[in-house]
Design a protein around this nucleic acid. Sequence first.
DNA 1: CATAGTACACTCATCACCCT
DNA 2: AGGGTGATGAGTGTACTATG
Length: 216
Amino acid sequence: MSEAIAAACHVALDRKVRSQLRKWPQRPPGVMPSLKQPGTWLRARPGDADSPAHPFLKLPGTNRLRTLPDGLWLHFSPSATDSYVDILCIEACSSLQNLLDKRSRFAPSTNSLLAVCPVSWLLTPAQANDPTPRWRLIRMLKEEPIRPLTLPVRDIRVLFGLKSRHYDGFARSQVAHPHEFFCPMEALTAEEGYEDPEMRALMARAAASANFMRLP
DNA sequence: CATAGTACACTCATCACCCT
DNA sequence: AGGGTGATGAGTGTACTATG
């Protein structure tokens, strides 16, 4: 019985994180426009229930082992001749196994990670009050797409949400990689968590321009 | 174009070992 | 001795594919 309750809690926690992230803006909170990222930010995950196909991450040449993050933001480059995306992922890890799995998926590597945007996602509007389809917001596309848009990933930043017990232990003894950021799970399940100053500051440090003393 | 089937990603459950 | 950690195997919901 207690196992069933624990399982229900995990499901509820995951669902709660996604339902909150669904309210987050199209641009990651705290991330400001910059010389490093002059293109368009769009929230790719979690998506609305009525649009089934959402962007995902994959490796070239395979349609298996795709990565479907809990939260995924895409920054599209403005140029049609130099197209790429920067990605910001949020992973809610309710177990240590989950953390290890997700951490390894986003580990730095020399092969090419790809972000795939389904056609149906590109054709639908990003916001309910604006009928503009997403592909028109992405300046690299000049015509309505008829096939999925597959882009190389230039930069990866990941925010891991950990349960407080895991977070405390991890924060005390572990060293994060430069692209890794960590927060307690409560920061992801909170109402209007994207307005939290600490969260905005954390995301600002995750921006691609944060590593430079000054930008021209 | 709609429906059913299939493959897969994600999560959960259980067991063994190690450190405190 | 107990709690925590690490490893392995199974279940479930979702998304894609094939067929009519």
